[in-house]
Write a protein that binds this DNA or RNA. Structure first.
Length: 547
DNA sequence: TTAGGGTTAG
């Protein structure tokens, strides 16, 4: 195009760039083509610059996006509403919420452009995704006032409602549905999909049915996304046969399931350890002409590890590049987790190095998996070394990583080091959560430090971290391992009183104890409290024939 | 020719 004479029009160049953008994953090519065009003196217009800004934002270079603004001024162009909307989206995407809010205020105050529905929709979405749904609702309310340049539309409502649903506030979202209908803003398939997902996640199946009927009345047809949501939710709730039925109906009606639908189904089987069935779904999907996503590989690899089929998992992992795909951070984290939990310390280290060599930066999950894996394979010192290194290399401090290290130190009886690290938290400005406290309490208990442990329990609740089911189980395990059976009884009564029950791993510890310690009345009493028919008890008991 | 909402894996 650059060599053609006469030169193709700016619009044709923009169309070409847009095509590349739509291919996804080639944003950096657009950035270099844009630079090339500038060097060759090929004319560009506002749209070209906006495309460039968008690509910079998508690859996480908001700084570059802002410096592209100078390209407008240099050419005598004025950044328009698309430019600013794109920049706002980029800031939100990069979790720079205060900066986005600042820019928005500046746009309004200095009248840099006239905001439209799209721009306001981006702001609402950004606020919601940052967890500020209430602020987004206030923003929506402000738009209803007289004199506001834009009125709330269906997309804005959908955004807010989806966010409420994801926060389990489905009834609030349903109230907004009524409001939409009252205000004559017609809901659409996206509105209903979000609500259906919210209800599915709470297993409110009857309400889901009601919404499907309502859709029929309004002549809104559920699409593949709506149905995939239902398939996924049915699978996660254990109703896999119903999910299969939905897929069968989809095929029958010619509304073909896509890769996401099949992925959900595969995951459903994997959750039930039915990998052969998952594999069958995978093959069906390929046979129907669909190309598996990385997700599909992630689901299967994870399932192979969970069922101890380490070789099958590695084989599938190594196949990924041959399918024209590149493993992403999730895949690497899955493999690392699988290798560590199978005790394959050396292979895990190898993969960790391989991952970094391929230019992939470990994320928060990677560090959690690796730190936990190192501790649990008996390499606590190596974990400590990595832990300190991540702090030095600028990785964000996170209480989760501390909690893992505290657990590792406590479990190898280095409670003094754990206590020091725990004291360090406040200096770093990090607040322990209920799990952090529980792990520390269990650690103290296993060293016989009953008084200190009880004090910390009180301090935890005073600090607003009320013990939950997980906390009680962790603490109970600490008490049992420390031989504090009578205290275990007391805490157990308290947890039942608060509506919590024993989990499988606590049951398992009790089973071990009862085998070793048959004459201890407290242990026997605790054993008797377990419902022998409960699934947790059965899971806890699957540790060998002697139990 | 450029900017907004709903689905899958750790």
């Amino acid at each position: 195009m650059a060599r053609m004479r006469p030169l193709p029009s700016v619009i044709q160049f923009n169309q070409m760039l847009t095509c590349i953008v739509k291919m996804k994953n080639h944003y950096s090519s657009v950035i270099s083509l844009f630079r090339d065009m500038c060097v060759r003196g090929i004319p560009v217009d506002e749209a070209t610059l906006n495309i460039m800004i968008n690509c910079c934002c998508v690859v996480g270079r908001v700084d570059l996006a802002f410096s592209t603004l100078s390209g407008f001024f240099k050419r005598g162009f004025v950044p328009n509403v698309v430019t600013f909307s794109t920049l706002l989206k980029g800031l939100f995407r990069d979790h720079k919420v205060p900066e986005a809010q600042e820019l928005f205020k500046k746009i309004i105050k200095e009248k840099l452009c006239k905001p439209n529905e799209t721009m306001l929709g981006i702001v609402i979405d950004g606020l919601c995704k940052a967890g500020n749904t209430q602020t987004a609702i206030e923003f929506l309310r402000a738009m209803e006032k007289r004199g506001s340049p834009c009125k709330p539309d269906a997309i804005m409502y959908n955004t807010v409602m989806d966010s409420l649903c994801k926060d389990k506030m489905v009834d609030e979202a349903l109230a907004l549905l009524l409001e939409m209908i009252e205000k004559d803003i017609p809901p659409n398939v996206v509105t209903y999909s979000s609500l259906i997902q919210g209800l599915c996640n709470l297993s409110r199946w009857k309400d889901v049915d009601k919404l499907f009927s309502e859709m029929k009345v309004y002549k809104i047809v559920p699409d593949v996304i709506t149905l995939s949501i239902v398939v996924d939710a049915l699978c996660k709730d254990g109703h896999i046969e119903d999910a299969e039925e939905v897929v069968r109906i989809m095929i029958q009606q010619g509304r073909n399931p896509d890769v996401v639908t099949y992925s959900s189904l595969m995951n459903g089987y994997c959750l039930q350890r039915r990998i052969d069935d998952a594999r069958r779904v995978f093959d069906t999907m390929v046979a129907s002409g669909l190309t598996p996503h990385l997700h599909c590989y992630g689901i299967l690899i994870n399932a192979y590890y969970k069922t101890k089929k380490v070789n099958a998992a590695m084989k599938l992992f190594r196949e990924i590049p041959h399918k024209g795909l590149t493993p992403n951070i999730v895949i690497y984290n899955t493999v690392l987790q699988g290798l560590f939990s199978s005790g394959r310390y050396l292979s895990a280290r190898e993969i960790f190095n391989e991952m970094q060599a391929s230019g992939m930066k470990p994320d928060f999950h990677t560090y959690c998996v690796v730190l936990d894996g190192l501790c649990k394979t008996g390499h606590v010192d190596e974990a400590l070394e990595l832990f300190h290194a991540t702090q030095a290399n600028g990785t964000d401090l996170h209480i989760g990583m501390y909690t893992i290290m505290l657990d590792g130190l406590c479990k190898c009886r280095r409670v003094d080091s754990a206590r020091d690290l725990f004291k360090n938290l406040s200096l770093k400005g990090l607040d322990p959560n209920v799990l952090t406290y529980s792990i520390m309490i269990a650690g103290l208990l296993s060293e016989g430090l009953l008084v200190e442990a009880k004090e910390l329990f009180e301090k935890m609740e005073e600090n607003g971290c009320l013990a939950d089911s997980v906390a009680y189980n962790v603490i109970l395990q600490g008490l049992l391992k420390g031989g504090h059976y009578e205290d275990a009884m007391a805490y157990y009564e308290e947890m039942v009183h608060r509506g919590f029950s024993l989990d499988a791993s606590t049951c398992s510890i009790l089973l071990d104890l009862s085998a070793e310690n048959q004459n201890n009345p407290s242990v026997l009493m605790l054993m008797l409290k377990i419902d022998p028919n409960s699934k947790k008890f059965m899971d806890g008991g699957q540790r060998g024939p002697s139990h």
